[in-house]
Design a protein around this nucleic acid. Sequence first.
DNA 1: ATGGCCGGGAACCCCGGA
Length: 256
Amino acid sequence: MKLATWNVNSLTVRLPHVLDWLVANQPDALCLQETKQEDSKFPYAALKEAGFNAIHNGQRTYNGVAIISPHAINDVQLDLPNFADEQKRIIAATIQGVRVICAYVVNGQALDSDKFQYKLNWLNALHHWVVDELKQHEKLALLGDYNIAPDDRDCHDPVAWEGQVLVSPQEREAFQKLLALGLSDSFRLFSDEAGHYSWWDYRMAAFRRNMGLRIDHILVSDALKPLCLSCQIDKLPRKLERPSDHTPVVLTLANN
DNA sequence: ATGGCCGGGAACCCCGGA
């Protein structure tokens, strides 16, 4: 089984990349973030033509999340049930017996911003909801754009980034609290190395210079952990014309 | 690294992103 996550920074612009990637990679589930479109604009027909079902929780201009799968998509949940939120950041479903949660975590903008407090509150609500989800679903994967680089290995220049969002102690603590629920950062099951990133700024030739952050993650429950075969960051889409600033992260699991 | 790049939407600038 292959599970993936990709912040596409506008599905309207990135649909050709997504369709090409689906055909080439044939995932069992692809989670998208920042579709930036209302449900009425979501390309259900084009995906169906490529052999994929999809569910979407979208809004105009900002946010928006989706799950794409060739399989039946069951028991769909939109939004955090325990947090009143205008922003469309959560969609979840059960696919082939695995609970798949797609999350677009708040950016937070700056540590002294109201948006940062919203980020911490949102992460706290996510934490409590995942506790409930784990009680109901032994096999669970939490995929998405976390907007958190878990430690200094996940940041190209920790000194330059000190005091910024995405690397702060508060955000990293929230990430560790998710792991403490019995979740594992699947990428770290296979590599302890620094320098592997999933996002690079559009400016300053950051991708070419590998000045990035690892902020897109696939967390897996204890029941899935022994099934993990590989977790890889696919840098190919970041090299295309008009790329998203994020690139896909892909987890391969044994079937049982 | 923080001006520099993107995308969206409303108007050719501003906001938000990371």
